[in-house]
Design a protein around this nucleic acid. Structure first.
Length: 421
RNA sequence: GCGGAAGUAGCUCAGCAGGUAGAGCAUCAGAUUGUGGCUCUGAGGGUCGUGGGUUCGAACCCCAUCUUUCGCCCCA
């Protein structure tokens, strides 16, 4: 048997209703907030990601699906979308048409990681980007958008964790102070953090290792080293969030794994997900455009949600959705009447009544069983009498009642019935 | 990439201390020859993840490998 690739998943017909449910809410809320969809290629030149996400991040170092195409170019299956969005915005001159862009996307991403529940090698993210403004209102807007999505989906049990990384200047200064502090404790840090110390010391802050936790709990806090604009930005953002009824938890140790973040960063965490407790997150990326050699500074902020993780949460919460069922099943006592069955089925469909019919020449009993399994509202039966006299037997599958009707009356009857539901 | 657990019919699982597989649900068929959902009866369906090894003999023991899962890591 040929099986699927490790870490990939077939989304089967029975799972589609919940996907459609989620996608529908994402569309609705995106529209509500005035965001427009963008659809981008699934692969990009490798440098789109290697230059932006950060050379010392795990994502770039070990998790990218990178290969050379037949022309010898290095190609990477996108491991995230923000870099692609920025690339597309620049390439298509979108900022010439309007200085503020509200963009959302939904699609598959690829990361070579060890699969686990809620962690796949091909997975899906929804994301929204608000590009062209550094106002704290934009930071709040993005979080309000996320919250609206959770409300519409019925997800209530989660935490919003926020922090600020300040602007580049503040962050650099803080990093020096942090390194100085950690240097005195380096021997007591976990081996992983000792490596991080040389590469990306900020990431030691959100380590879960107990050895690190002890040292980190005593370390200098970034809030004390922010310059005035950075601090004001953060305070203003929080104030707007509070005014709009967002409850959040400040965590000075929240550092996200992509290097392009600055100022506000945030994460959405759920108790339903185990070790992969984050189902969404984002932050400001005011310097990302410059990494693409864009001549101007373009402040921007965005976030992304893991669709599979959202679906896990919804299922843990007990969400049950009905599948799509046809309205009518056309059955016959004799295979000879199949031509009429097909005609009637088509007539129903032309009149907007979804319908299927028997394709296996089974007994009427089997056909009714099948109709029952398909959860149709009505079964239309064509037997000798019906075939000869040009009417049909219409059986209501809920109460079992039957009536003999002409085809036209059948149509109006079903349509009226549907109208009442 | 590291450590732990698991992998038996479509699904959920049982299989006692090694002797070549079972249940429930599902599927299909029948219970007065044109009628479902309840009940009853019966049937089909598994090279016990894969490949080696130990043994007279392995689903059960050993090794490898693949996949899933839990934690680390990472992140959505």
């Amino acid at each position: 048997m040929i099986s699927s690739i490790r870490g990939t998943k077939d989304i089967l017909p029975e799972e589609i209703p919940v996907w459609h449910f989620v996608e529908k809410k994402l569309h609705e809320v995106s529209n509500l907030f005035g965001f427009s969809e963008i659809r981008l290629p699934i692969f990009e030149k490798t440098e789109v990601f290697s230059r932006t996400i950060g050379a010392d991040t795990d994502l770039v170092n070990k998790e990218m699906y990178t290969f050379f195409d037949k022309g010898g170019d290095s190609i990477t299956l996108r491991p995230e979308m923000t870099a692609s969005v920025v690339r597309a915005v620049i390439q298509n001159n979108l900022l010439q048409q309007s200085s503020i862009l509200r963009i959302w996307y939904l699609g598959p991403l690829f990361r070579y990681e060890r699969p686990q529940k809620g962690r796949l090698r091909q997975f899906h993210q929804y994301g929204a980007e608000l590009i062209g403004t550094n106002e704290p209102e934009a930071d709040a807007e993005i979080i309000l958008l996320a919250k609206e999505i959770f409300d519409k989906l019925g997800i209530n049990d989660y935490n919003i964790i926020i922090n600020t990384l300040g602007n580049t200047f503040s962050r650099m200064r803080y990093k020096e102070i942090l390194v100085e502090y950690l240097r005195n404790h380096i021997a007591k840090l976990s081996p992983e953090s000792q490596v991080r110390f040389g590469k990306n010391p900020l990431r030691i802050l959100d380590s879960k290792d107990p050895r690190d936790l002890e040292i980190v709990s005593e370390c200098p806090r970034i809030l004390n080293y922010l310059d005035k604009p950075s601090l004001e930005h953060y305070e203003k953002t929080k104030k707007i969030l509070e005014k709009n009824g967002i409850t959040f938890i400040e965590n000075p140790f929240l550092v996200r794994g992509l290097d392009y973040y600055s100022h506000t960063v945030f994460e959405f965490q759920s108790p339903y997900l185990g070790a992969q407790n984050s189902f969404g997150g984002g932050g400001r990326y005011n310097e990302l455009f410059e990494q693409f050699n864009y001549p101007k500074q373009v402040p921007a902020i965005g976030f992304a949600l893991g669709i599979e993780r959202i679906i896990i949460i919804l299922e843990e919460q007990g969400l049950k959705l009905d599948n799509y069922y046809p309205t009518a099943y056309v059955a016959t006592t004799k295979p000879e009447y199949l031509d009429m069955v097909v005609e009637i089925t088509q007539l129903l469909r032309k009149n907007n009544i979804s319908a299927i019919y028997e394709l296996q020449k089974r007994s009427l009993k089997a056909q009714l069983k099948e109709a029952n399994r398909q959860k149709v509202l009505f079964t239309i039966i064509i037997g000798d009498e019906e075939y000869q006299n040009g009417f049909v037997t219409l059986k209501n599958m809920k109460d079992g009642t039957q009536r003999t009707l002409t085809l036209n009356d059948t149509l109006t009857y079903i349509q009226n019935y549907q109208g009442q539901i």
